[in-house]
Design a protein around this nucleic acid. Structure first.
Ligand SMILES: NC(=O)c1ccc[n+]([C@@H]2O[C@H](COP(=O)([O-])OP(=O)(O)OC[C@H]3O[C@@H](n4cnc5c(N)ncnc54)[C@H](O)[C@@H]3O)[C@@H](O)[C@H]2O)c1
Ligand SMILES: NC(=O)c1ccc[n+]([C@@H]2O[C@H](COP(=O)([O-])OP(=O)(O)OC[C@H]3O[C@@H](n4cnc5c(N)ncnc54)[C@H](O)[C@@H]3O)[C@@H](O)[C@H]2O)c1
Lengths: 207, 207
DNA sequence: AATTTCTTGTTAACATTTTAACAATATATG
DNA sequence: CATATATTGTTAAAATGTTAACAAGAAATT
């Protein structure tokens, strides 16, 4: 399978799927483009175009079969094997994000988290938590694919070096720090403040 | 002032500012487009174009004066008066997001949070926390501009009705629920899973 | 003084994303 | 049966976003 879907489409497909999974298909097995569009707050043409790109056909009158669509999206955007995630920093934010994964049966699996504290009971989470001193060893052994950075930035430099050396392929970065890593590593920065300030700009009267 | 900046530029300007504020201007008072671009992992032309849009000029050799630039960005994207935020749901995620606001001296100010629990000590946060039963009353009285939704979705329908009635202008939504609110309210959905799955798509070998 | 070297500001080209438009087609309705 | 209606799939157009290119000009260097 070639990775020829536009990034914006990939992200939307993931969002469609999550929304569709929330629908009880015993009540409604089909959904129309305009209905899904309404749920997603986007244009119906968008939906039709995205589904065209993954070659998914609907019934001209009943609409799209929800279960089949969920499966088709998976065929197109999921990795064949499970990809392994590790969290670095497991405080308020890390815990909140990690708990989103429960009951999601995604192809992404959290296999480890790291934190400063050497001895700590981590009963609230269902993956293994290590002190950061073990990072080198664990990343290599577990063959982690993707890192989620939710740490406060003490020692970031050394942490990054270990990440790069371990062969990780992508980083989702929630810290405000600059990540000086090679271009081969796909970095996605994620910042709420930017979104909020954009929202503020477009909702405030500027006169 | 007219709101004629492209959304993508507004978001980037906010990000530039946050990055610039992290620089010690006693050491380096100026920054070049390519330096900031490197920090942001974007193209230098991007920076120059964005700053052109807000009419900010740099010194042809020294680059951009950091303090002036921070101020200029503020003039262009900040609301004249402080805008008031309220969080609905103040668990792991709410707390993590709220604590990002400390020491940020933004024009956005958290003035209230709501949660299910009637009696609870909220010592870790520095704004007022109310039980959700008080929502109607508080939103009206405080004239909240923007809502951050970080609740687990019990009673969402009623919560939404109160939000709409109170005249809120924007919602940053972290829940997976569909927000059925009038089009006048600017809704921004924010989902980490979509970003992660996109990251997974572009980092995995699909052959 | 001339030349080289940078960097900004700006334009124009390019790429991507979004949306409108509509033919094709199936069902329902009069 | 003919007509009205609704929805998909697809193309084309419009809008937005990104990047390349380069003139203009300031300092440094020869
Ligand atoms: N991008 C956003 O929108 C956003 C929102 C909220 C928080 N944040 C950022 O997320 C990060 C975490 O926030 P939080 O509220 O969860 O903080 P927290 O204090 O609750 O948790 C921090 C965690 O990181 C660990 N940690 C710190 N330094 C570490 C290191 N060098 N190596 C390994 N582990 C380390 C700690 O042990 C702890 O588990 C912060 O950098 C914060 O700025 C970003
Ligand atoms: N978009 C994302 O990337 C992302 C990531 C993590 C969590 N989430 C979502 O954020 C939400 C909160 O997650 P969390 O980990 O902080 O949960 P949590 O259980 O730690 O906290 C939930 C909070 O919401 C409050 N609450 C619940 N129902 C409420 C109601 N009807 N009215 C008022 N308050 C209410 C609770 O009192 C509590 O304060 C969940 O919906 C979760 O799915 C989204």
């Amino acid at each position: 399978m070639e990775k020829n879907l536009p990034p914006a489409t990939v992200e939307r497909l993931s969002n469609y799927r999550r929304k569709l999974k929330g629908i009880n298909t015993e009540e409604t097995a089909y959904i129309h483009s305009h209905q899904l569009a309404h749920l997603m707050r986007i244009n119906p043409a968008h939906i039709r175009r995205d589904l065209m790109l993954i070659n998914f056909s609907g019934d001209i009158h009943k609409g799209y079969n929800i279960e089949n669509l969920i499966a088709k999206i998976g065929e197109n955007i999921d990795c064949i094997r499970k990809q392994k995630l590790a969290f670095i920093g497991i405080g308020d934010l890390g815990r909140a994000l990690a708990s989103e994964f429960k009951n999601k049966d995604s192809k992404l699996e959290i296999v480890a988290a790291f934190r400063l504290e050497e001895n700590l009971n981590d009963e609230s989470v269902d993956f293994k938590c290590y002190p950061i001193s073990k990072i080198k060893q664990v990343l290599k052994k577990e063959e982690i694919d993707i890192i989620v950075l939710t740490l406060t930035k003490i020692n970031l430099k050394e942490v990054l070096k270990n990440i790069v050396d371990s062969g990780v392929k992508g980083i989702l970065n929630f810290t405000s720090a600059h990540l000086d890593v090679p271009d081969e590593i796909y970095v996605e920065n994620y910042d709420m403040i930017g979104k909020l300030e954009k929202l503020s700009y477009f909702t405030s009267c500027k006169d």
